[in-house]
């Protein structure tokens, strides 16, 4: 308990120091984007990691949150915090549309959510009066708080960091609660979960609701981060990217999801040097990490650390260099 607290504080401090270590505005911008990705990955982790639901529709909730926040900020000059919260709530509300499909299973459910994402994207693309159509939304005002502009890259980074940390804490609490246990039980054995008194459909719907709120909040952040929304930022490809994040990092844990999000956002940037090969390499990585099983990269890292700790100790104790003499 204590060590995990120290680890969390350490990671938080490290992340808080990032803009000081790398103050290049472009990179801070990308890091903020990675943090938004982390929130999206958390929402997917709740679905796929805890409840065993493969959602290919998180990009839709992300978009709904973004457009809601942007519209409120542009048309009604709603303060950014409220706009982001409203984005989360409206995304959550729209997740109730999925209630009829939660009783589907496995790949049927995945494809149905993909269908939902495609429909939402088409609405964004075609309803000019609501979303600006294919032009999107421009001139989203910079966030301000008590009269101070928070539009700088560093300020935005810290807004994203605080939000991501809050979502992490919230989801961590959810995971270790009656709700989280019920979701895990559903993912392991639906029949046994029902026999324990869990209403599967209700819990899956709630899971979609919570995940959609988080994705919507991420969308709200994105609106203020990029100050410009294009409907193609929220196509089904985005939903797929979000799923890939979690699988790469390891579906069983929130830190794993965060790691996966960082990789999915940052690696293509880092691979810019490899030019046209970057997405190709990314695809290969997706296959390799998917093949690594449900542990993902975070699981592999943990195993590696354990292995080094164990064998390193034994190596030191045995002193093979003397034993061999």
């Amino acid at each position: 308990m204590r060590s995990s607290l120290i680890a969390r504080l350490g990671v938080a401090l490290l992340l808080a120091a990032v803009p000081l270590l790398q103050s290049n505005a472009y990179w801070v911008h990308i890091f903020s984007l990675a943090l938004i990705g982390v929130i999206l990955a958390f929402s997917q982790q709740l679905l796929v990691g805890m409840a065993g639901i493969v959602s290919l529709g998180q990009g839709a909730f992300y978009g709904i949150g973004a457009y809601t926040a942007a519209s409120l900020a542009i048309s009604f000059h709603v303060p950014f915090v409220l706009a982001i919260v409203a984005g989360g709530l409206l995304a959550g509300l729209s997740s109730l549309l999925l209630i009829p499909i939660v009783r589907l299973k496995g790949s049927s459910l995945a494809v149905a959510t993909l269908g939902f994402a495609i429909i939402v994207h088409l609405v964004m693309l075609n309803e000019d009066w609501l979303t600006g159509g294919s032009i999107g939304m421009i001139d989203i005002p910079a966030p301000t708080l008590f009269g101070f502009s928070l539009g700088g890259e560093k300020a935005l980074y810290y807004i994203c960091l605080i939000t991501a940390a809050a979502v992490f804490l919230a989801f961590d609490r959810i995971a270790h609660s009656r709700f989280g246990r019920a979701l895990t039980a559903i993912s392991q054995d639906e029949e046994a979960a029902r026999a324990s008194g869990i209403n599967i459909a209700v819990y899956k719907s709630k899971c979609f609701l919570v995940a959609a709120i988080a994705s919507g909040i991420a969308g709200g952040l994105y609106a203020f981060h990029s100050r410009y929304l294009n409907p193609n930022d929220f196509d089904f490809q985005k939903s797929i990217d979000i799923l890939i994040m979690v699988v790469i990092g390891g579906i069983r844990s929130l830190p794993g999801a965060a790691l996966g999000a960082a990789i999915v956002v940052l690696i293509p940037e880092l691979l810019r040097a490899s030019g046209e090969f970057r997405l190709l390499l990314f695809g290969v990585m997706v296959i390799v990490f998917a093949g690594a099983g449900s542990k993902g990269l975070s699981g592999i890292l943990v195993d590696l650390v354990k292995y080094i700790a164990q064998h390193g100790q034994r190596w030191l104790l045995q002193k093979p260099w003397t034993a061999r003499l």
């Binding site: 796929v48 493969v54 496995g106 790949s107 995945a110 797929i240 799923l243 890939i244 699988v247 579906i251 046209e276 090969f277 997405l279 190709l280 990314f282 695809g283 290969v284 990585m285 997706v286 296959i287 998917a290 093949g291 099983g293 449900s294």
Partner: peptide, 19 residues
């Protein structure tokens, strides 16, 4: 490897082939 992961791998294959 679990079914979910194989499904993700097919997405990876799709990305590779497209690129």
């Amino acid at each position: 490897v679990s079914a979910i992961n194989i499904m993700i791998a097919t997405l990876g294959v799709s990305i590779v082939l497209q690129n």
